[in-house]
Amino acid sequence: MIQTDILIIGAGPVGLFTVFEAGLLKLRCHLIDALPIPGGQCAEIYPKKPIYDIPAYPEILAGDLINNLLKQIEPFKPGFTLGEPAVQLEKLDNGHFEVTTKQGTVHRAPVVAIAGGLGVFVPRRPKIEDLQRFEEKGIAYFIKDPEKYKGEKVVISGGGDSALDWAIFMADNFASDVTLVHRSKNFRAHPDSVQKAFDLANTGKIKLHLDSEVYKINGNGKLDTVTLKRKEGDDVQIATKHWLRLLCLTPILRPIGHWGNRKKCHCGQQCIGL
């Protein structure tokens, strides 16, 4: 059980700066986020895009803004529960709150700050038979514990920065056997990453399947093969224990939107009454 002064749900820019403000009052904070990294939308949707409306920064990349915020709050030593959505909020007899994640991590604090932005980031699930049965048993939508893939055979799907950065990282640093699968020849990722992925493909460190997508998965309890459908040519079957579908995640207002009784508050907003 994690006990703190202020429990912050959402480690986006707002949640992160809350740590700083609370720290000035000598209050300790613990942040919970469903994403495996802090930064909210800035980290998940547009880390490599510039932002122009931050005071004193004529231009800053969203990812750098988050790195700066993390540096700024470092002295206050916040705790983090990452890669776990907070699904339950309860008021205890002593007036404190208990927040539990889907994975069962329990947190308690006298104050909970909800900095959930557009909501909790969740995966978009393709229509593939048995998909949910293999979630956490070979299929993942983001990378929480990279060490798990060291020296392993992994299939990564996606054409954005997340897919390419991880494919490059694993091929370069983990000696993993990496197959990158993408539906087309157009990439959303930064051109430098695309070039690097092609260079690694040319030296045989990444196996590249373009104009292809995973459409079938198999396994006995755990994933053991994925099958690719290709725009041209026959299906390809790949034996693997890990399919990482690193495509865009989407924010949804569940479960925050369902917590408590919504009441018209003196601030004029629909606030949560517990």
Binding site: I45, G158, G160, H182, R183, R188, L247
Partner: peptide, 29 residues
């Protein structure tokens, strides 16, 4: 063109602006 939450199907035969690289790449995901 970074989320696809505005994805729609065009049912009429209109002369629409061509898709740019960002739109094509987003639809590919």
């Amino acid at each position: 063109a970074m989320c696809a939450s505005c994805h729609c199907y065009i049912l009429s035969d209109h002369d629409l602006p061509e898709q740019g690289h960002d739109e094509i790449a987003m639809l590919d995901e």
